[in-house]
C-alpha cells in the first residue's frame, strides 16, 4: 500500500488527505499545533456568502475521521529529504517517517504589523489588525481602546502587501474583499458606527465580490477613500489621528477614528519557508515554487514532492480547497506511475 505524508492540517491538507484516503492510500497528516485548522478557526464569517466559518471547520474536521488518515498533531516537520527510493521526514524531536510522496500544505501567516511602525500597531491601543477585528466580529463585541462602542472604524488596505519597503511586492488577494466583509459586519452590528476603507485599488476578483462591494456602499453606507495612510498618532482621548491623502480629490486629509484596522497581508508561514529551503523548492518571497502555474501547479521540481494551498501564494479558502483536490489527483497519478514502473 502506498503512503503519502501531508504536512499541515489546514483546509488544503485536510481536503487532500480525505480524498487520498478515500482512494485507498495511507495518509499521515502532520500538524505543528495541537489542533487542526488554526487559521480558519479565527474567522467569523466567510466571504462572499457570510457563511459561518465554524460550519466549514466542522465539515473539514469530520473528514479527518475517515479510515486511512493518521493524524499526528503537535509535531513539527523540520526536514524533508529524498532517500533514493522514498522520502524521509524528520520532526523536531528527531523522529523520522518514511513515505512514497509528500504534500506540502504548510500555508501562510499574516504580515507582522509591528513592522509598519508608522501605523502604530502595538503602540496605540486603537490600532488593530484584521485578525483582531475578525475576533471582535466573531464574539459580537466590537469595542474601541477604552472598551466602549466605537463611533468610527477605519480600514486600511495593503498593509504588508504591494509594499516595496517591506519587501512584499505581491497582492495578498483576499484583503480587499475581507475589508468589505468586515466593514459590512461592523455596520450590521453597530448601525451608528461610521465605517470607511482606505485603498489603493479594490480588486473584486471573485464571484459575488463586486456585488458585495456595491451592497457595502448602497445598503450599508460604507465609504471608500482612495489613498494610503501615511502615519497614525494617538489623541489624548485614546483615539487615532490619521494623515492621508484622498488621491481622487487630490487633497491631503486628516481624520480621527476610534479604531484603525490594518488589513494585514499573507506571507509564507515559518514552516513553508523552512521546508521550501530544506527541499530546495523555495520561490519568490519564500513561497513554494511549482513547476509551472498552468498545467503543473501542484508539482515541484522534485518528483514525488507536491504543494497545495497558501504555501504557494495567497489564496482564498475555496481556492485552497480546490487546489488540494487537484494536488490529490496529481499525487494519485504519481503513485500509479510508480506502480507501473515496478
Amino acid at each position: 500500500m502506498r503512503k503519502v505524508a501531508i504536512i499541515g492540517a489546514g483546509p488544503a491538507g485536510i481536503e487532500a488527505a480525505s480524498i487520498l484516503a478515500r482512494n485507498g492510500i495511507q495518509v499521515s497528516l502532520f500538524e505543528k499545533s495541537e489542533t487542526p485548522l488554526k487559521n480558519l478557526q479565527d474567522k467569523a464569517f466567510l466571504f462572499p456568502n457570510f457563511q459561518a466559518a465554524q460550519e466549514i471547520v466542522d465539515d473539514l474536521s469530520g473528514k479527518l475521521l475517515a479510515d486511512g488518515i493518521t493524524s499526528v498533531f503537535g509535531v513539527e516537520i523540520t526536514d524533508v529529504r529524498w532517500q533514493g527510493t522514498e522520502w524521509k521526514l524528520t520532526d523536531i524531536k528527531g523522529q523520522t517517517y518514511v513515505t512514497d510522496s509528500v504534500l506540502i500544505a504548510t500555508g501562510y501567516q499574516v504580515f507582522d504589523a509591528h513592522r509598519k511602525e508608522e501605523l502604530g500597531y502595538g503602540i496605540y491601543k486603537g490600532v488593530i489588525t484584521s485578525l483582531d477585528m475578525e475576533q471582535m466580529i466573531k464574539h459580537g463585541k466590537i469595542t474601541n481602546a477604552n472598551g466602549d462602542e466605537p463611533k468610527r472604524v477605519t480600514f486600511l488596505q495593503c498593509v504588508g502587501s504591494r509594499d516595496e519597503k517591506s519587501g512584499n511586492h505581491y497582492c495578498s488577494k483576499i484583503c480587499c474583499v475581507t475589508a468589505v466583509k468586515q466593514a459590512i459586519e461592523v455596520r450590521k452590528q453597530l448601525p451608528k458606527c461610521d465605517s470607511s476603507v482606505f485603498y489603493m485599488d479594490l480588486r473584486m476578483w471573485g464571484q459575488g465580490f463586486e456585488e458585495m462591494y456595491r451592497t457595502a456602499q448602497e445598503k450599508y453606507g460604507v465609504s471608500f477613500v482612495r489613498g494610503r495612510i501615511s502615519e497614525a498618532a494617538a489623541t489624548f482621548d485614546g483615539r487615532v489621528q490619521l494623515k492621508s491623502e484622498d488621491t481622487l480629490m487630490g487633497l491631503p486629509l486628516k481624520m480621527t477614528t476610534d479604531l484603525l484596522v490594518l488589513m494585514v497581508g499573507m506571507e509564507p508561514s515559518c514552516g513553508t519557508k523552512l521546508l521550501g529551503k530544506s527541499c530546495d523548492v523555495n520561490g519568490d518571497y519564500g513561497f513554494i515554487k511549482t513547476v509551472n502555474p498552468h498545467l503543473y501547479d501542484n508539482e515541484t521540481s522534485r518528483p514525488g514532492l507536491f504543494a497545495a494551498g497558501t504555501c504557494k501564494r495567497p489564496m482564498s479558502i475555496s481556492d485552497s480547497i480546490n487546489d488540494a483536490r487537484s494536488a490529490a489527483l496529481a499525487i494519485q497519478e504519481y503513485l500509479d506511475s510508480l506502480k507501473n514502473e515496478n
Binding site: E117, E118, I123, Y124, S230, E231, A232, A233
Partner: peptide, 9 residues
C-alpha cells in the same frame, strides 16, 4: 520619528 512612534512615545 513620526513614522516610528515607538521612539517619540
Amino acid at each position: 520619528s513620526h513614522l516610528t512612534p515607538g521612539i517619540t512615545e
